[in-house]
Simulated scan of single mutants.
Amino acid sequence: MNIVHQKVAIYNNKIKESAELIFESYSASSENVGLTLVLAGLGRYQFQDSDFYKALFGLRALLEPKNIVICINGCRLDFVCSSMGQQMSRGQVGYIIEMGKRGTNRVGTFDHCDDLDKLTTVNKQIDCIKQWSESLKG
């Protein structure tokens, strides 16, 4: 098992705090990974999936009812991880997107993003990704 710890900022009801994000890869041959967010005094939230991008979406769904947002690129409205990125980097690299343009601005999914206006909910991000995908067809 591979375990990596990363300090991250979060917004807890729009108040900035620090937390720890733990990345777990369960074995070299396994596709399963896990993300755990450890919040001082607020507990641990954990989610497992086939890659880190999918696990992040699951983790965010657990956090959103508590008004907790992780300050990373993967939580941005304008961030997408391609299926190739999910396979090649296990979801740790993606793109900042613009309507009507292919994603070319590569960034780390778990790199810091402090712009509260860019951070969003899972559903709004999924809607934005769908709109962006449609905008490429035109």
Rank of each mutant, 00 (worst) to 15 (best):
66 K>P: 06
66 K>C: 05
66 K>Q: 09
68 I>Y: 11
70 I>N: 05
70 I>Q: 04
71 C>H: 02
71 C>E: 08
72 I>M: 15
73 N>R: 05
76 R>A: 10
76 R>V: 03
76 R>N: 10
76 R>E: 14
77 L>P: 00
78 D>V: 13
78 D>G: 11
78 D>H: 10
78 D>C: 12
79 F>I: 07
79 F>C: 06
79 F>S: 00
80 V>Y: 12
80 V>H: 14
80 V>T: 07
81 C>W: 06
81 C>V: 10
81 C>Q: 11
81 C>H: 04
82 S>I: 03
83 S>K: 09
83 S>H: 08
83 S>Y: 05
84 M>W: 00
84 M>V: 10
85 G>K: 01
85 G>M: 01
86 Q>P: 05
86 Q>D: 12
88 M>Y: 03
89 S>Y: 09
89 S>W: 09
89 S>N: 09
89 S>I: 01
90 R>C: 01
91 G>L: 05
91 G>Y: 04
92 Q>S: 12
92 Q>T: 14
94 G>V: 10
94 G>Y: 08
94 G>I: 13
94 G>R: 06
94 G>A: 11
95 Y>P: 02
96 I>Q: 06
96 I>V: 14
96 I>P: 05
97 I>A: 11
97 I>V: 15
97 I>P: 12
98 E>F: 07
98 E>D: 15
98 E>C: 13
98 E>W: 00
99 M>N: 13
103 G>K: 01
103 G>A: 06
103 G>H: 08
104 T>L: 12
105 N>H: 15
105 N>D: 13
107 V>K: 02
107 V>P: 00
109 T>N: 08
109 T>Q: 11
109 T>K: 01
110 F>G: 03
110 F>K: 02
111 D>T: 03
111 D>K: 01
111 D>A: 07
112 H>V: 15
112 H>G: 10
112 H>W: 00
112 H>M: 14
112 H>Y: 11
